[in-house]
Amino acid sequence: MRYLCLIYDAESKWTTMTPAETGAFMGEYGAFTENVKASGHYIGGNPLKPTSTATTVRVRSGKISTTDGPFAETKEQLGGYYLIEAKDLNDAIQVAARIPSARIGSIEVRPIMEMPHP
């Protein structure tokens, strides 16, 4: 099954970390990504730019409206994702628990709804 692991943590933490700490954390992410590629779990994944760069788009009565900022203001923000292939939810939980941000933020694990291919 495919699962999307959504990484939520406080963006503000990046402003309080020293360059050395940031480097170490990014290093952990690099190692994790290599690890899940080697284990065959990895399908894709990316970090996102901060929510200050987000634009929320809606179409109402045929008109596009855009607002600055994310869909919802929350204490932890969506900061990136991994798309993984896992045997089942237990396997996916084991992978999600190894994402470095799981220790400071939270990972939401969502199964992908498989659509029939034409």
Binding site: M1, Y3, A86, K87, D88, L89, N90, A92, P111
Partner: peptide, 14 residues
């Protein structure tokens, strides 16, 4: 069903 919770006895580690 939807989230793929397996029908298993957990492995020793868990």
């Amino acid at each position: 069903r939807a989230a793929g919770i397996p029908y298993q006895v957990p492995e020793m580690g868990d």
